[in-house]
Design a protein around this nucleic acid. Structure first.
Lengths: 144, 144
DNA sequence: TATAATTTAATTGTGCTCAATTGAATCGAG
DNA sequence: CTCGATTCAATTGAGCACAATTAAATTATA
């Protein structure tokens, strides 16, 4: 039987373990990404670029649930590293297109084993991972 | 049958929905916390204080999976608002003790309905919430 | 067509996260 | 007791998250 006291206990919140686990998992990626001179946000942005090759900032933001305030500096940094090109769409000058470069494409091979390595570092059964995946996307679906 | 191509797809990662869902959930708290002039990090710090009343920065950090670089400014801000007091332990001057004030205690009542309100805004069955909770703590347990 | 509304990305400012470093206090081995 | 190691919090610097604002381009409407 829950009351106000229980509801404000840290361990009864969903937000807390969610937030802490997310940061912890990102921390596990860091050593692998450091070696490739990538931040985590740059990495997930590149994941979209590997799938799309050409993509507007807006589309990228929708996929990643991030706005231009976050993406603009991330994409500028990726451009400086030569992973993407950025240019205004000729059809609509408001739209900034981001395009994968050959350099960026090659980075994908270097990243190929990261998910496996990080995945192995977690003691989570395939069944549990799948359940977690499903529940997270169920939550994410409510942010559209 | 998975290959490198699949493993680097955004939607096959666990890290991505975890991170995005965590931020989305925190965003749902924001309007409620804004009304009380609290940030999310201040809020979870207060949750520990409501449970402990007196707690070192180190213990707080262990509970929240945060270090002093994050906590120091958060706790200073909470002190300025009059929610906690901070003072060095007489037994060990290295240790900074954080103590709940009467003001801080009263804040708890004002926060009492936040978990319920936020919880209601998610379409997640009690069963699913419990499963998610279990899986997240299973992951968190690997960060100790 | 003129202008009002909308869309898009960039910018700005505040706060969080984290790694690395610093400095003080304490502890432990000799 | 002394010196080196450890512990603890604070600080610093880099990068991310996000709300709010700005400016330009486009679209819709009167």
């Amino acid at each position: 039987m829950k009351n106000e006291t229980d509801s404000l206990r840290l361990e009864n919140q969903l937000c807390f373990p969610l937030y802490a686990a997310a940061r912890g998992v990102v921390r596990r990626y860091r050593p692998h990404l450091d070696a490739l001179n990538l931040t985590y946000t740059q990495y997930i942005a590149m994941m979209v670029m590997w799938e799309e090759r050409l993509c507007s900032v807006r589309e990228l933001g929708k996929r990643l649930y991030l706005d231009s305030g976050t993406l603009t500096p991330v994409l500028k940094s990726l451009e400086q590293k030569g992973c993407v090109r950025r240019y205004r769409s000729p059809e609509d000058e408001r739209v900034l297109l981001v395009e994968l470069t050959e350099n960026g494409r090659q980075l994908r091979e270097a990243c190929a084993d990261i998910p496996y390595k990080v995945g192995c570092s977690f003691d989570l059964s395939a069944q549990d991972a799948q359940t977690l995946h499903r529940l997270l996307y169920q939550i994410l679906g409510q942010f559209d």
